[in-house]
């Protein structure tokens, strides 16, 4: 066992990643109309439970993926940050819908222009609202990302925001 520690650590990473990616406990932070599409994707017709994400936890302390579903206003932003900070590591964030990705068609005094200005985002699912297929695709991308995570908690750097969407 101690003869080849590197080999053992690598396999452990893989096993932990495999276990984690099929036991996603999500916290749905639903603020707007995308919530209906989230429900459609979560229910039995499309069924995110096939990917191990079937049980939403309505306490951030028991969740490991934060689904931000719907427009975030400046008034709501401190609440979102607090929810994110209450989640325990390891944790991931999914921006569901174009409003959470970039602000969408809102460009006014009230709306946050993308939640990645507040919390780090792992997967962006654009669409107004996104089709359930988009959501499942985003979920698979998230699973790939979880699988890649090192046992130390080290995670790939988030993708940089494209220049045309810079804030």
């Amino acid at each position: 066992m101690s003869a080849d520690a590197g080999f053992l650590t690598s396999r452990l990473d893989e096993a932990i990643g495999w276990a984690r990616k099929f036991s996603i406990f999500q916290y749905p932070f639903v603020t707007a109309c995308c919530g209906m599409e989230y429900m459609a994707a979560a229910c039995s017709h499309y069924d995110v439970d096939r990917f191990g994400a079937g049980l939403p936890r309505f306490s951030p302390r028991q969740a490991d993926v934060l689904f931000v579903v719907g427009t975030i206003s400046h008034k709501m932003a401190p609440v979102l940050l607090r929810i994110y900070e209450q989640m325990t590591e390891p944790k991931w964030v999914v921006a569901f819908g174009v409003c959470t990705c970039t602000g969408g068609f809102y460009d006014n005094y009230a709306t946050v222009m993308g939640i990645d200005t507040i919390v780090p985002v792992d997967v962006y699912i654009p669409g107004c609202p996104p089709r359930p297929e988009y959501v499942l695709d985003g979920l698979l991308k998230l699973q790939a990302k979880i699988q890649d995570q090192r046992e130390t908690g080290e995670r790939p750097a988030p993708e940089p925001r494209p220049a045309e969407f810079s804030v």
Binding site: H74, A77, Y109, M113, T117, I118, V167
Partner: peptide, 9 residues
Amino acid sequence: RQPLIGPNN
């Protein structure tokens, strides 16, 4: 823009 937190976007 008058954000409570985050950049002035």
